[in-house]
Each structure stands twice: as structure tokens, then as C-alpha cells.
């Protein structure tokens, strides 16, 4: 493997690591909090919302938006680090 390919594969590894972390959170807030553990979380009430119900109809969506913007920031930094930002 030459230097250029080496750099590319290191960049790709870091990218995949970010994807793994972000998609784990994506899974936890929707399928976890909103579906699988909904009944348990519903025992906690915040204002008029049962927590599991809130995650299913509100919370998961807010976190999805945040996840994409975190991804944008992480990747912009990563592009800079490897000089791929041109």
C-alpha cells in the first residue's frame, strides 16, 4: 500500500468509527427508548409526558437532528485533519 492509500484507509477507519457511535445513539433513542423500553420509561413522568411516549413522539426526532449536525462537525474536522477539505 502506498502513502496515499494508507492515508485514505486511515480516514475511512475513523469515519466508520464515527458512524458506529452515532448510529448506536440513533438506535438507542428510537428503537430503545421509544419502543423496546417504552413501558419501563413510561413510569417516569415529566410534565404531562410519560417519558417513553415522549421519546417516541418528540425526543427521538430532536436527537436525530442533533446527530446529523454532530456528524457534520466531526466530518468537517476529519476532512481538515487529512487534507480532504478542498
Amino acid at each position: 500500500m502506498n502513502k496515499k492509500q494508507h492515508k485514505a484507509s486511515a480516514y475511512w477507519k475513523e469515519n466508520v468509527k464515527y458512524l458506529f457511535i452515532l448510529l448506536s445513539i440513533w438506535f438507542l433513542v428510537s428503537y430503545g427508548a421509544g419502543i423496546l423500553f417504552k413501558d419501563v420509561l413510561d413510569n417516569i413522568q415529566i410534565g404531562g409526558f410519560k417519558l417513553g411516549f415522549w421519546f417516541a413522539q418528540q425526543g427521538s426526532i430532536y436527537i436525530f437532528v442533533i446527530l446529523i449536525f454532530v456528524y457534520v462537525r466531526l466530518m468537517n474536522k476529519l476532512d481538515k485533519k487529512y487534507g480532504y477539505d478542498t
Binding site: L19, L22, G34, F53, A56, Q57, S60, L67, I68, Y71
Partner: peptide
């Protein structure tokens, strides 16, 4: 509550779209 499938389903797909 069953309507949540549309709320999560039609927004969560954008995370997949943006990342993958």
C-alpha cells in the same frame, strides 16, 4: 402511540441518509 411509527420512521431515515 401506534402513530409513532410514522414520526420516528419518516425522520430517522434521514440519519441513515446523511451518514450512509
Amino acid at each position: 402511540y401506534d402513530g409513532s411509527v410514522y414520526l420516528m420512521g419518516w425522520t430517522g431515515g434521514y440519519v441513515l441518509l446523511a451518514l450512509l
